[in-house]
Design a protein around this nucleic acid. Structure first.
Length: 425
RNA sequence: GGAGAGAUGGCCGAGUCGGCUGAAGGCGCUCGCCUGCUAAGCGAGUGUAGGGUGUAAAGCUCUACCGAGGGUUCGAAUCCCUCUCUCUCCGCCA
């Protein structure tokens, strides 16, 4: 959510931003509502002031045993007027807030302007594409041949985009989760948390999934409860409606959660394999920082995520998303794309974003600088560190051998009973 | 699921028959004084949000907020209703 004052004072910039994001929101109604809101506010506050003064007067008259009937009668009318104005104000504020909630964040000045993913810019590459003396297979073939990925039974148990893992695949998934969490806690200074996997509507509002992206979420029937689409939601909302001390910042949090996404609008896309599932595992990195530090902290968080792929020895590239391809709440986003040899392409395995104060304003997460009385909004940053299912895909494809077996990256072996390779269940 | 108790400022805790209670008292914290050091002591200050005024900061001023929402009333932390959450006991359960 943007600051109304910012919108009011930088109307040109906000208009331009909406254009860059290819959004057709018209800001006029917002400004009109803001004007209206302040007009009613001044009026109703003045009336309330008069009522307060009169109430004291009535109290005094009664104590002195004097007649207060005339004043009371007068206040009855004033009370009615206030009631009407309060109702009007509530209506206007509701509309005003609803409007503000659907305006996207302003891209950072370093973000390339563009209309689609074609305008994203590659920042760097790491490692090399592996060379195979045979035609590399896609992960779904590798997994099915080894008997460790069962797409048919996943679909039977639940439906499309759900997969059953057997034996070594299940163990590898679990190993990856532990490995990632261990690296981030022991080497990068994050505190591990295990949050609820179901959150309420207020939390979804806080990080920006609601009200605009309801159709992407799974909701529990009859409850204001939603399955988390990412750990970003419960973890960022840990400090919702709190005021932190300056000394507590920056906060580094990491969490494993499953993620649930309806994938509305992606019918027919990535239908084979593990790439696009309704349920997948992810280790998430979340930071709450002071505004002046957030862009440095974003770079560090990105590197923290990259470390996982480097340790696993898998080739990847980093790209910066252009204005037209960025998510609703982000000011700047880097994607890490991992190399998938069978598809001869790079696929997103992590998305690291700075939201500046956009989420903090919605979620009301503030901090107080030492020696100052007023509060400031924190900046929030998060990124996948990494998407576990896609990491498993990358391992299967990059570490496959001609005989159909898969080598286990060395750093994962301690988590896999020191096994060197996967030959079957 | 059944029965009961509660929700007040960073924390503890008081609010009688509704009327200078944004809220006593204490703790904590901040600044100043005092003091070989520390501790103690003394003095002052110490919620959040929004509006007005102000070039800005400060300041001044108004409004709202005592779990949330509604109601009664000239006036509600105090009375009534609904909801949420917490705690205790019973039942059930991993």
């Amino acid at each position: 959510m943007l600051d109304v004052k910012f919108v009011r004072e930088n109307i040109g910039r906000v208009r331009q931003m909406l254009e860059e994001r290819r959004s057709d929101i018209d800001l006029e109604p917002l400004l009109a509502l803001d004007e209206q809101r302040r007009g009613i506010l001044v009026d109703v506050e003045e009336k309330k002031h008069r009522r307060n003064v009169a109430s004291e007067e009535i109290s005094r008259l009664k104590k002195e045993k004097k007649d207060a009937a005339a004043l009371i009668e007068e206040m009855k009318d004033l009370g009615q007027e206030i009631k009407v104005l309060d109702q009007q104000l509530a209506d206007v504020e509701q509309q005003f807030r609803d409007f503000l909630l659907i305006i996207p964040n302003v891209p950072h000045e370093s973000v390339p302007v563009g209309t689609s993913e074609k305008d994203n810019k590659v920042v760097r590459f790491w490692g090399d594409k592996p060379s195979f003396g045979f035609a590399p297979k896609p992960h779904w073939e590798i997994g099915e041949n080894l008997g460790i990925l069962d797409f048919e039974r996943g679909a039977k148990i639940t439906g499309a985009r759900f997969t059953l893992y057997w034996g070594a695949a299940a163990a590898l998934e679990r190993a990856l989760i532990s490995f990632m969490l261990d690296i981030h806690t022991s080497r990068h200074g994050y505190t591990e948390v295990l949050p609820p996997f179901i959150v309420n509507g207020a939390s979804m509002m806080g990080t920006g999934q609601l009200p605009k992206f309801k159709e992407d979420l799974f909701k529990l029937d009859g409850w204001d409860y939603w399955l988390v689409p990412t750990a970003e939601v419960p973890v960022t909302n840990i400090h919702r409606d709190e005021i932190l001390e300056e000394a507590e910042l920056p906060k580094y949090l990491t969490a494993y959660t499953p993620c649930f996404r309806s994938e509305a609008g992606s019918h027919g896309k990535d239908t084979r394999g593990l790439i696009r599932q309704h349920q997948f595992n992810k280790v998430e990195l979340v930071k709450l920082t002071k505004p002046e530090d957030s862009y440095d902290e974003l770079e560090k968080l990105l590197q923290n995520a990259e470390t996982i792929l480097r340790e696993l020895g898998i080739h990847y590239r980093v790209i910066v998303l252009c204005s037209g391809d960025m998510g609703f709440s982000a000011s700047k986003t880097y994607d890490i794309e991992v190399w998938l040899p069978a598809q001869d392409t790079y696929r997103e395995i992590s998305s690291c974003s700075n939201f500046e104060d956009f989420q903090a304003r919605r979620a009301n997460i503030r901090f107080r600088r030492k020696g100052r009385s007023r509060t400031d909004l924190v900046h929030t940053i998060n990124g996948s560190g990494l998407a576990v299912g896609r990491t498993l895909v990358a391992i299967l494809e990059n570490y496959q051998q001609e005989d159909g077996s898969v080598l286990i990256p060395e750093v994962l072996r301690p988590y896999m009973g020191m096994a060197r390779e996967i030959k079957g269940r």
